[in-house]
């Protein structure tokens, strides 16, 4: 049984929200620089990190995601001046409540990645997925009614 688990490594499902101006471009740069990161990461493009409703994060967990990462411009560099500050506050609030809801807050992350930081984008994704692999499957919030 143990051997079987080892043969089939756990592949976490990761939803990554990227703002159009900085981190999505950073992810593009990681791509054009051919910097590898795990295929488990799936990117959703949004105009600004402040477009991420905490409900999107919860929805992802409810639907079986093992980790959610939100990427925005560095503080002070937001294309819309202040969007990432809102994100920072909203996510601080959401993350602090995750344990209460029944989900490890380590499954979420908020990162600042600029359009010039392809290498940083890849390393953040590698690190995050690495951590999620150790944590294992997200069983607690996954709603069986949502599984098709």
């Amino acid at each position: 049984m143990q051997d079987l688990v080892k043969e089939k490594p756990f592949k976490p499902l990761v939803v990554s929200f990227c703002c159009n101006w900085c981190s999505y471009a950073g992810a593009d740069l990681a791509g054009s620089s051919r910097l590898e990161y795990p295929a488990e990461v799936k990117i959703i493009r949004i105009p600004c990190s402040c477009r991420v409703d905490p409900l999107f994060v919860l929805r992802a967990f409810q639907r079986g995601a093992d980790g959610v990462i939100i990427n925005g411009c560095h503080p002070g560099d937001c294309h819309y001046s202040t969007g990432n500050y809102y994100t920072r506050r909203r996510m601080a609030m959401l993350f602090s409540m995750l344990d209460f809801i029944g989900i490890e807050k380590e499954r979420t992350r908020l990162e600042w990645v600029s359009a010039a930081e392809g290498a940083r984008f890849a390393s953040v994704m590698n690190e995050f997925v690495g951590e999620l692999r150790e944590m294992g499957e997200n069983k607690r919030l996954g709603d069986i009614r949502c599984k098709e």
């Binding site: 499902l13 959703i44 949004i46 639907r63 079986g64 995601a65």
Partner: peptide
Amino acid sequence: QIMAEVDAICRT
């Protein structure tokens, strides 16, 4: 739309 994307990605 964003919820639909989330759902589509999480669909197994």
